[in-house]
Design a binder for these strands. Structure first.
Lengths: 208, 208, 208, 208
DNA sequence: AATGAATGAGCCTTCATTCAT
DNA sequence: TATGAATGAAGGCTCATTCAT
């Protein structure tokens, strides 16, 4: 009864450590975005985080551990993003928002270049590959569930094959937007909006 | 008979130099695919190319110059790919072929991880960004032209806005497949084929 | 009854400090044996001692001070070992016991590798060199005295030159056993026992 | 026929590489003697060798490889020392010479502190332990053979147990001298000579 | 008295690049 | 043209030591 409480008094130790970890992750994200995983040095990350290089190693075992932590945090965000997805009308907005976040980065450090690089890195790092695969699996399941609920809500009963095809199309389209965000930073969002409005009704079989 | 008949009396000098450059680029492509831009060392590239590290610098100013040259060569390939695109029925096949090449690599060293990494690199390197942007522009124009010809051939006259939306959707979908190739190397091609067969008719407004 | 009766009213302060010092020295000995002087980290010593790294510095000025203290404590042990040496028949047993202690370590942390390492360190550290030299001097004197008593007891009167030669031979043999303990950890003690039984009578001129 | 010759012309490549390796080993030996294995930095070794730190890695895989190479070279020397051992009268001289070399170092870098430290290191490094064990085995065999020849020459036929005991006594004595060389650098060689003259006849059962 | 967060110097190693041959 | 030895600048990481709490 008294254990999980401790709201008052002193959060201290644990909390501070967590704050430091966040500080490091924030700095690392910024550096990775600017320079890439390999080009960003621990010294630069430390400087960005406003601490000594050695101190980072009290909170992370290695540079690779930082990369993995960043990946984990981004996966967490994606989970929340899908979780909070309401009806189908909101989907388009959300995709557009994602494009914005990818281009400019948001508070959470979501960024398209980082997304691409970590994906490429999966080819060479088994830990990263495993983390991404696990996350993709969960994300797919989550999104498929959402699609099913949506369809039911509209009185439809699409079979699983159908749903999986829709999911793959959407997933590729959205992830393809990450590439656009990176390679065509000046791309007009209105243009993307138009494409979304054209694509979604056709994918979900309803009159746009 | 004796080779493609080099214009007589012509400087064989330049040919040799060009051959050396190709040899280096081939080796570099292979190394970059295996290890990534930054992790691949000049020594390893030289070894793969069967020459000394120093010699590479007679043909390329720096490691970065090699990266740029590889990007340029890949753009060239894309041009050819679009150029040789025939009717709309072929489009699906081609996309599937591309997915295969991305996953397993083909002779030309086309590879999804490399594609992602070079895209991410554009964020940090102006030269790369410019090269990619120029190529994307050309590719878009090329593909739009192809779509227009196709439509005309089928007795339609889609307006430009329409065509651009279609192009963006397709581009994102295809480039998104690069991410799938990298993050989900075990993905069944038949599944992708199904998605393509579902997507294309809807994008191009014809009965699949 | 209540412990060895600490002089009444005396500062228990100093006792506690002494206890802490011992705790640290014990831990350090263990770590040095396992990893060597330089490879053993203060953090590891602290952990082994069950205290924080910072606290060690309240009791020792530096890592080097710990090393010196350990050396001093081992010299003290040697003094006791020679002091308690009875007749010549016991000498062989004692040497064998020493070999065992060197190989497996005993409570006091006596260990051959540590012995060798501290000897080598004397080459580079004047303080260590001085401490070892002083101790060796005392040990030699002590042992020579013991030999003289022994001889007298058996009705002999060996001259000093004679005694010094014997001492040097024995000292080298015994210290050489430290090297064997380290380089040949599987060496059969019975074999060493045989060598001892052969050597001692010849060195001390009596019928084994 | 022509292969192994190549005395004239250009030794070049191979020879230069070997010379560089020697240069590095010499420098490393000096540094290790001065500062110990762990305390000696690659930078310092490089400086002593008159080259850049990076270059060392063209000739040795790691710092540890240098240590192993030094050990190997010292073992080689020992082999030659035993090989060239003639009659028993020479043995005493040789032991004394060894003591000198240990104290002052000779061309080959033989040095007692280094000998002790590498022995201690065997406790923690399996590769070193294996190298030393193999060498000790060979050395013992070699020396036992020499003793047998010697005995035969003098018309004796000691059994193997006998020879092994003698060998162990001598080995310990000699290796113990290494400790003396380190801990008592001012020790008078005449004194050691006396001990040797007293020990050898007793160990080999002849009238000194 | 005790903690452990924090620092900064230094370590081993790698690598793009240059240059004498 | 071609080699590969050589360099020097980092890079990731460790650790003795200090200090605020």
């Amino acid at each position: 009864m008294s254990a999980p409480a401790r709201p008052r008094g002193r959060p201290k130790r644990e909390d501070r450590a967590q704050a430091q970890r966040e500080r490091i992750l924030d700095a690392a994200r910024r550096c990775f975005v600017e320079q890439g995983f390999h080009a960003a040095s621990m010294a630069h990350i430390a400087e960005t985080a406003g601490m000594s290089a050695g101190l980072i190693y009290r909170y992370f075992d290695s540079k690779n551990a930082i990369i993995l932590a960043i990946i984990a945090s981004q996966l967490e965000e994606r989970r929340e993003r899908i979780d909070s997805l309401r009806d189908i009308d909101q989907l388009g907005e959300r995709v557009l928002e994602l494009f914005h976040a990818w281009r400019h980065g948001d508070d959470s450090g979501m960024n398209a270049a980082l997304f691409l690089e970590m994906s490429a890195e999966a080819t060479r790092d088994a830990q990263i590959a495993a983390a991404l695969a696990a996350s993709d699996d969960e994300g797919s399941r989550q999104f498929t569930e959402w699609m099913r609920r949506e369809a039911t809500h509209r009185g439809l009963q699409p079979d699983d094959t159908e749903l999986q095809a829709r999911r793959l199309i959407l997933q590729c389209f959205i992830e393809g937007l990450a590439l656009r965000a990176v390679r065509q930073p000046g791309l007009d969002p209105a243009f993307i909006d138009a494409a979304i409005r054209r694509l979604l009704p056709r994918v979900f079989d309803y009159a746009g």
